[in-house]
Nucleic acid binder design. Structure first.
Lengths: 341, 341
DNA sequence: TATAGGGTTGTAACCGGTATCAATACTACA
DNA sequence: TGTAGTATTGATACCGGTTACAACCCTATA
């Protein structure tokens, strides 16, 4: 089942067989046909390793996401995979599990496997880790918030801070003042920005910030539940809660329901991401629509641009996609709020 | 950055360097240390392809699932990945997108890449496709329903038919008679079994089956919505709906709400899978608890058993995991049902 | 002192391909 | 007919490792 067998059976040299596969135009038509027939008959496919050894190319990209059970990341992954598949390229999906050591380990593996490029989604990695990748000649593209100190690496993101500002601003506009935030503990930088946006909206309105209204939690439904419960246990309970992800909102809303607190009548909610489930829960969740699939697509395209052009000055590019607030029932209505507060 | 450089710098032959990496016990301690120092200094890692060419082993398994946006499959994937990662093995996650051609294409890629084994989750592939894999000496394990005609391939599954029977039986027990089913169009075999379980429960009770109560739909929230709407538009509307997945239930419940039909007062629901979201929607969904993560773990362990032992008569094994009905609010209460019907 | 045997190392064949270069055959043209 | 030019093919070095085998050194024993 190797090239020698094919060559022997077709009565040619291995070079000719190799040529049929790589430069078919340079082989006489009848010889070519004979060889192709033998290839088909023997179901021969060139050895993956041998090819790699010569070409040093794998037609594989690495995709590292923080958590494969988080639909928001999976939608980004889907976008990346769609492009990658279309480019006849395989995707090695790695699950960082919100742990920097695991991310590092995966990156090492990806480098070892000589992937053609790497997409990092909301990565926890620090700049020297990432530089280490590019130093090996492997292109990298970031999707989601940057750690801030990483320069020269192309990135696709949304304006988290601005989006959060607008979300909280909306709560203020419809009458809320006691607004809390539940933000994920990872990725740190991204959530810091969301907190910044929240703070800015409050500050602008002269609302003094309460420290106990800032709740950090693991970015999961369970995390949201715990943080929601904590907020609910406060003496001075918030009337509205902004969460840095929809999952956190789901958990917090569940906590409210479990403790007999009505949403949105007693506590309003605004989430972040607009995952598919966000308009299926009760009440439908007002949330920041993050163009997840598109982020994946754009990020992957950018990566392939760099791979195909060997990266001629595409680096340093930053692509900012638009997000917008999707207003649903979970933050109540102006009229009703007027009645209640 | 190749083995020659290391050898030169350490003043030894390439063979000795290679030995340090593969059979360190056969190298004199001081030589070994000197070489290790050079390796560290030069940040040398053996070329992936060259190693593969010699060992014909990739430390990679392939994992093919029908849809990466379906949380039910992702939980299985997580289980597989957990084991694989623990085994120091990489996982190549492939998204079949519910299309047999895409599955075939991915399997070809996985074979070409000489993965050490393949896990197929609820695959659409036919027996000859799968035999083609094992013929190449690549172990395969199936998770989820079998197509029925595939023999000699180990499989981890639950009793879909029995679970569905019990689910519908529960609806009957609490007083429902007009029970519809919404089942996913893929994977065909799995859903056929669920329909069989549904039918059996009805037949046992002498309830005549209505053809219009059998609704097939793509296994997504959107599919559930459409099927739910269709059922709702019937002249003789069902009083209870069993769905072959939670996603379908979510969509159908959403359709009911949009059309002002109360759940569970006017239509009861029972889903299948028990994905994380199923007890967050309103009303909390009664559903068949499928041990997804465990299925992934068990399936992956089985695969590694076969890989490690070169498959000595482990084939033919079938592991049946237990599922149970998780009763929540979406199918109403006996008392209340008594009032309504 | 000669020799057997273990420990350590180097040489070179090999894994399965690709690509360079030279060799050959064939054509066209002077 | 001689020769240049082109099309086609084969022999072989090479990609970067692993490993069988041989060679060497050294020590222990007869």
């Amino acid at each position: 089942m190797n090239i020698k067998e094919v060559a022997k059976k077709a009565g040619v040299s291995v070079a000719t067989v190799s040529r049929v596969l790589n430069h078919p135009e340079s082989v006489a038509p009848d010889t070519k046909q004979r060889i192709l027939d033998v290839i088909q008959e023997l179901e021969y496919t060139p050895n993956w390793f041998a090819r790699g050894l010569n070409f040093n190319k794998t037609d594989t990209i690495g995709l590292l996401i923080p958590n494969i059970l988080n639909p928001s990341y999976m939608e980004i992954a889907k976008g990346v995979e769609d492009v990658s598949h279309q480019k006849n390229c395989n995707t090695l999906l790695c699950n960082g599990e919100n742990a920097i050591e695991k991310e590092r380990k995966y990156v090492d593996i990806l480098i070892k496997r000589r992937v053609d490029g790497i997409v990092l989604v909301s990565s926890l990695l620090e700049s020297d880790n990432i530089e280490n990748i590019t130093k090996q000649g492997i292109p990298v593209v970031l999707i989601g918030e940057n750690r801030g100190d990483i320069k020269g690496i192309p990135i696709v993101r949304i304006d988290c801070e601005g989006a959060s500002y607008k979300a909280v601003r909306h709560l203020i506009d419809i009458g809320y003042k006691d607004i809390a935030i539940i933000y994920g503990s990872t990725p740190e930088k991204e959530n810091k920005r969301k907190v910044d946006g929240y703070r800015q909206a409050l500050a602008e309105e002269g609302i003094t910030e309460r420290e106990e209204y800032l709740q950090e939690a693991p970015n999961t439904i369970e995390g949201g539940y715990i943080a929601g419960k904590r907020l609910n246990d406060l003496k001075h309970r918030p009337r509205a809660i902004f969460t840095s992800s929809d999952l956190l909102a789901f958990g917090a809303i569940d906590a409210m329901k479990d403790h007999g607190v009505k949403v949105p009548e007693e506590v309003a909610f605004v989430g972040f991401d607009n995952i598919r489930m966000s308009n299926l829960i009760e009440p439908k969740l007002t949330t920041v629509e993050k163009p997840m699939h598109k982020m994946g697509v754009v990020g992957a395209r950018l990566l392939f641009d760099i791979i195909d052009t060997k990266g001629e000055d595409i680096t340093n590019r930053e692509i900012l996609l638009q997000s917008k607030l999707k207003i649903r029932k979970s933050c109540g209505h102006k009229e009703r709020i007027g009645e209640i507060f």
